[in-house]
Simulated assay, not measured.
Amino acid sequence: MSGLLAWQDDPEYVAQIDDLLHTDAVQKLNNYTQHHSMTRLEHSLNVSYRSYLIGKKLHLNTRALARAGLLHDLFYYDWRKTKFNRGTHAYIHPRVALRNAEKITELTPMEKDIIVKHMWGATIGLPRYKETWVVSLVDDYCAMDEYMGHLANDVEDKLKVNH
């Protein structure tokens, strides 16, 4: 179920994200929990690599998928606790992530669209590119997979205690 794919074993993928992965801004994501069972960096790598793999099969822009997928949640607060006056977390965090991403790298219009619209469904900004749709759907899939993995572990732990 949940867990990181072997992205490290894919030199083509690593070449797309290596410069970003080694920035303090991206490494800082390791300090934040995402969906209970993973760090925000692990989640972002899951979204990035899965999107990249889908993009390869569909002949899409794999560079944009890998890079924007890694940067889509580049924000540094606990979304469960932090509340905003100017909108919901679903609306605010993609904009914060975009602003943070622009501080560490130049982004193409496609990468910007991917980051700011990855919460499509929870927000109304319609994705402009096929790649944006991919990251949005993969992000939803990963969030569910990661959360369900957390629930499965809780159930397994409770069963061990009760027997």
Rank of each mutant, 00 (worst) to 15 (best):
L98E: 11
G121C: 01
A101I: 02
E111L: 07
V116L: 07
I114V: 01
I114R: 07
T108G: 09
P94Q: 13
M119F: 01
I115L: 07
I104L: 11
K103D: 10
A101G: 06
I114W: 05
G121V: 00
K103E: 11
N100L: 06
L98N: 04
P109C: 05
M110E: 15
R95A: 10
N100D: 03
I114Y: 02
T123V: 13
P94Y: 10
V96S: 07
R95I: 15
A97Q: 07
A101K: 05
P94T: 02
R95P: 06
P94N: 01
M119N: 15
E102K: 15
M110V: 14
I115Q: 13
P94D: 11
K112N: 02
V96T: 15
I115V: 07
V116K: 11
M119L: 13
N100E: 06
A97W: 09
E111N: 06
R95Q: 15
R95W: 08
I104F: 07
V116S: 10
L126G: 05
I115P: 06
L107T: 05
T108S: 15
M119Q: 12
A122R: 11
R99A: 14
E106N: 13
G121R: 00
T105E: 09
M119D: 00
T123Q: 09
R95Y: 05
P109N: 05
A101F: 07
A122W: 14
P94R: 02
I115S: 08
E106K: 11
R95G: 04
T123F: 06
W120I: 09
M119A: 12
A122M: 14
A97S: 15
G125N: 09
T108K: 04
D113L: 03
G121Y: 03
E106G: 15
L107D: 12
E106P: 03
T105M: 10
E106C: 01
A122P: 05
M119Y: 08
M110H: 09
T105P: 02
I124Y: 12
K112R: 15
V96H: 08
T108L: 09
P94C: 04
I104G: 02
V116P: 01
A122E: 13
T123A: 08
M110K: 13
E102V: 02
T105H: 06
W120G: 02
L107H: 08
H118S: 13
R99F: 12
D113A: 10
D113H: 08
I114D: 11
T105S: 14
E111T: 03
I104D: 09
T108I: 03
L107V: 10
I124V: 01
A122Y: 14
L126N: 14
W120N: 00
L98R: 03
P94F: 03
D113K: 07
W120M: 03
E102Y: 06
P109T: 04
K112Q: 05
T123G: 01
A122F: 12
H118N: 09
E106T: 13
I114S: 01
G121E: 00
R95T: 11
N100K: 06
G121T: 01
H118C: 06
T105L: 13
